[in-house]
Nucleic acid binder design. Sequence first.
RNA 1: UCUACGGAAGCUUAACUGGUCUAAGCAUUCGUCUGAUAAGCGAAAGACAGUUGGUUCGAGUCCAACCCGUAGGACCA
Length: 1050
Amino acid sequence: MYKQGIDKIGYPELEKNILKFWKENSVFEKSVESRPKEKPFTFYEGPPTANGKPGIHHVISRTLKDLICRYKTMKGFRVERKAGWDTHGLPVEIEVEKALGIKSKSEIPQYGVEKYNKACRDSVFKYLDLWNEMTERMGYWIDLDSAYVTLTNDYIESVWWALKTLFDKGLIYKDYKIVPQDPKSETVLSSHELALGYRETKDPSVYVLFKIANKDEYFLVWTTTPWTLISNVALAVGADVNYVKVINKEKKIILAKDLLSVLDEEYKIIEEMKGSELEGIDYEQLLPYVKTNKKSFFVCLGDFVSTEDGSGIVHIAPAFGADDYELSKKYDLPMLQPVDRGGKFTDEVIDFKGQFVKDADKEIIIKLKKEDRLYKKETIVHTYPFCWRHPDVPVIYYARESWFIKTTSVAQKMVELNKSIKWQPPEVGTGRFGNWLEENKDWALSRDRFWATPLPIWINDDWEMFAVGSIEELKQGFIEENGKRIPVGEAENIDLHKPFVDKVLFEKDGKIYKRTPELIDVWFDSGSMPFAQYHYPFENKEWFEKNAFPADFISEGIDQTRGWFYTLHAIASMLFDNVAFKNIIVNELILDKKGLKMSKAKGNTVDPFVLFEKYGADAARWYLVVNSPPWRPTLFDEDGLVEVQRKFFGTLLNTYSFFALYAGIDGFKYEEEQIALEKREEIDRWIISKLNSLIAEYESMMDDYNVTKAARAVSEFTIDYLSNWYVRRCRRRFWKSEMNENKLSAYQTLYECIDTICKLTAPFTPFIAEEVYQNLNTVTKKESFISVHLADFPVKGKIDRELELKMDTAQNIVYLARALRAKSNLKVRQPLKKLMVVVSEDKKDAVLNMKDVILEEVNIKSLEILENESSLLNKTAKPNFKNIGPKFGKIVKLIADRISRLSIEEISEIEKENNLTFNLNGDEISISHDDVEIISKEVTGLLVESEGGTTVAIDTELSDELIAEGLAREFVNRIQNMRKDAGYEVTDKIKVVYSGTNKLADAIKIFSNYISAETLAEQLEYSERLNGGVVRDWKIGEHNCKIQIEKIST
RNA sequence: UCUACGGAAGCUUAACUGGUCUAAGCAUUCGUCUGAUAAGCGAAAGACAGUUGGUUCGAGUCCAACCCGUAGGACCA
């Protein structure tokens, strides 16, 4: 029989049972295998790093991924889902350094790269168990056993294949680039890391004099980094900027005219010129520590020069600034870099060698002052980036040689391809991602670290190079050991990592090739996952090309825009001339309830495990999707979660419980023939039509990847239509009569609704959907699936718009009538004589049709439709702007005003003739029925309520009989309450004894049959002597009474 | 400085292609229904829709400028 009381078990417990069921029956595997191979829906999992703990933000993206995949499965697609792990890169190294107590990069070779990388390898799965546990617990179906792992030889080999392909296409090159770097760890900082470290700091702000060659004149130059002056090779001015030569402090000084205010003391302008006139002027090297080998120390033109601050003359040190470097290429300037990667001056700078550059600032200034080259020195407070891991260490911009991928050469193609991707929300695709592509810069590929995929490029002394694209090719190389060459093919363990690959040498045409020492950006790893996860092209070649590329769907957080989304897109564009993914849902951050970012420091993080334990995974999944669209920053609020859980889950489970209760009593197992829709009650046809509308809307939303709207539609149907109207309206059908066709059709209808809701919610809340579905299906055996997740998506049936509208009208009238009752203080239990309704012509049928429903809902005896012609009505007209706007344009206001003052006669005319002509300021104006909305107002003093063209009035006059019936109903209500309080079963028969006023007793006598039937009272008698059973005093209106009920044993 | 998103009731959000007292939920007060529901229904109160202009007969909605918030990018000699 149907399982009872599932709403009493806690959700977490329920979910754990379901998890067990899934596992024992391999439901996930079956859900994949039961779908045809020829109908794939391709999904890519973005690999997380398992050396950090999973958080709530992982729950949201995994919910999205899971629900789309489950939905597509139900739609008949085969959705292979391979998990993946990102295992390389700096995040891993940082953790390991911490654990090993390594403080700077240079300590690593001493420690031993082999040992170090082993430690990295061991640490990458530090939290794997936790991740797996979360994945499983939240019901995220993905194949963890066959997960791809970026550190395996197979995976790296595929990445190498990609790199070689790009190399052979000429897309990989080596160049200098000015990069922000952390001098302490000697690592390049990504822009993301850089952004973490900006803060206010004090720096020297110095004005320096550069002496013009062979003249006693000076350029005034401003800088906040005096240490870069040593590496100065040129000065830059703006071509169109106005400059002046002034006499100031007895010196001839050149600076921008707009910045004269920086000068101390009086000055006299002796000459004006454009920046372009200054180009080419030579000057003397300021701090001649380093010799140059190219033409240097002259004035250049730079479009980046501004007169915002400084002097309008910018000092150029190509190794330490991006603008500077660009300019140096243009003017073929030398690059002076007397600073090592640790940010210390090299030996050439004899006075400051070994000093950290920032620390040398002071002494450099003193030196300049001694040489009379310091114009003035101030201190400036500005924001400057510091290393986020070492808060006291300023970032140094530093020229480094790096490998690049020439993504700019495919930028246009990437932009084009992007246009075919469906982004949800669209603005991320066009905006953030689109802009990024438009402003594409070459991809800085190399990293000077230890734990990552090695760059497979081998170089000889003559700078000839080639790329290795497979293990097979690597085997052509050899390793030297004790002076002997051992072919790589004979090596014991080929490990495509440092230090092994660095030992491999090649000899070609007598030249020895050695691997360039760099590793690659980890993002290249994850961006290669479409093919590398299948070890393409070494294995699965056909499968990949046919079934696994590009992805139909991916979903991750917005932070991946310039990360994974970009690398996937770039690599696919370059290698396959195609997109990597066709549809994408981007989720935003999850903030705490106040809208603040969650962080460990603030202590406002939400532990997913705690959440699952407290409310269950379904609740978290549902809340994150329903509460606000996932691509909007979501404020996470536990109270909100509780609310959606109570509302939606509570209602769904309760609707099921209701069904289970009565279906159990009646032994309904859906064994009977299905009753044809036409033979069912109108309300049955109505809810089925609503259900079909829901399926249609759900499908279109889901196919549009608008998951929030789909979920909300399900929620609305379940709560408002099914529970609060259908079930409530139909309760009697379930518990009153004997089994007959009417009752059967109620059962079948409700069953179908719940069954379908299970299937629609299954992608979102897989546990509860499973529970309810199984409870239904194991009894009825209607479907052969052991799990809702193996079931097919429901087939949409006929939608009866007309019927839906009819019911809307009826509901509308009911709400209005209830409002009237509330206003006049007439409880619904008090029956009333007459309900009068005025509706537009097209709704009259609907009202007559729904008469019984309406009357029963509002407990009124009769319904009368007042004809428009009735003298009871006072009508007014309202302008319908949608129509008259386009029709009358500018004079619409006048017309509207006139319409609202139409007389009753005029309104009748327009109703009859569908046309009315009147004079307005001399113009003949003609309006039709469509141009106005006619509202009726009762004038006979009855209560009236109206909305949207429907007007309702009730006759509040009470006859003795109506009052008696009202009392009887109240009496029933009290007995029912007592039954419930006493804990009687709904089928228990009882005996009722009561006492009270004469009037009440009379009413009870008149309606004794009704009362007995409603309360299952076998006996109903008046007596002053009450004893036994349950006794209680009541007050019904002004009538006191005593009621005693007692269960009759059968 | 650029780009995107957001700014509405105490809070969270909704409103298709512009249509005239902006809607719902939560919270508050009062009332009410119930033989499924920790539910439902009704009433009261609560928003000058960030600001200022513009287009239009009509703007929460379209356009422009600005302010505030969030995220991202550029720059910081």
